[in-house]
Amino acid sequence: MLRFVLHRLAYAVPIIVGVSLVCFLLVHVAPGDPASALIPDDTPPEIAAQIRAAYGFDRPLPIQYLTWLGNVATGDLGLALSTRRPVIEEVLPAVANTLRLAAGAIVLACVAGVVLGTLAAYRAGRTSDRAISAIGISGMSVPQYWLGIVLVIVFSVELGLLPATGMGHPDAGLAGQWQHMILPTITLATVPAGVIARSVRSAVSEVLQQEYVQALEAKGLPAAWIVLHVAKNAAPALLAIMGLQFANLLGGSILVETIFAWPGSGYLLNSAIFLRDLPLMQGTVLVLALFFVLANLAVDLLQMALDPRMNSARRGSG
């Protein structure tokens, strides 16, 4: 078990290095000089060269990468060009805000998806199953920017129940901010809820067709105990899907966060792109990618803990 954990952790290292390389190059393959945003057009060439040297843009790329990587490893993501503040100080609070929405959205999506999907699987082929499938497909295909705006119109403009944008006073804490979270959380949750409902339906109905479910009935187990068996069998495959959905949400949605002016990573990335703030963009993408890798790692470990067959396969081969 420990061996597998270490093994899987070791696998994550080259992925993270690769991610960092891509993040670094992202800035350098973009058209134009990374420093050009800093340098007004009428700057004399000597001054421009000085600025480039000050940011280290005149050195060879591999050296720049290694320097950057060394800084990143110590938590220094450089300075944001637009605000002159350390990138890390911009990124971490934004990621924390996104994480808050993502956590709310994934909980909502999992609860809705598992309940609807399980119900549909148990009533396969009946009207309720078809109705749930229709809901699931709608959830997956409704455009988020449209849904976000509709929710704002209905709940904020017409009914005046919930705030339309922002996250409230920064120091208010969850108690003062939860109303601001509701609409963006619902908007974010629809797609993963639809995906999860469909996956749960197919995973559970596959398990229900297995002979061991009939054997559990033949043993005379109460229905609730049988549901537990079904859940444990369907869980490994579903966890992977839920984890992936969560990882997607962590990336933050540029559209949703922009509509609701939610100061998360998507919102930050959007402004970094518009301001051509390359260090900020780079830092945001890197931190998000790291979260993505970690989320996948966590899913893998959980999956293994749940599935004894995977567990002993590792034991056998490792």
């Binding site: 002979e211 061991y212 009939q214 054997a215 009935e217 005379g220 068996h229 069998n233 599935d307």
Partner: peptide
């Protein structure tokens, strides 16, 4: 459910699929 398994029990043909793998 009360009589299944206690009054009358069944042995299935294929234990590999009739036992819960997890």
């Amino acid at each position: 459910a009360r009589i299944r398994g206690s009054l009358v029990a069944m042995i299935f043909q294929e234990p590999a699929t009739a036992l819960d793998p997890t």
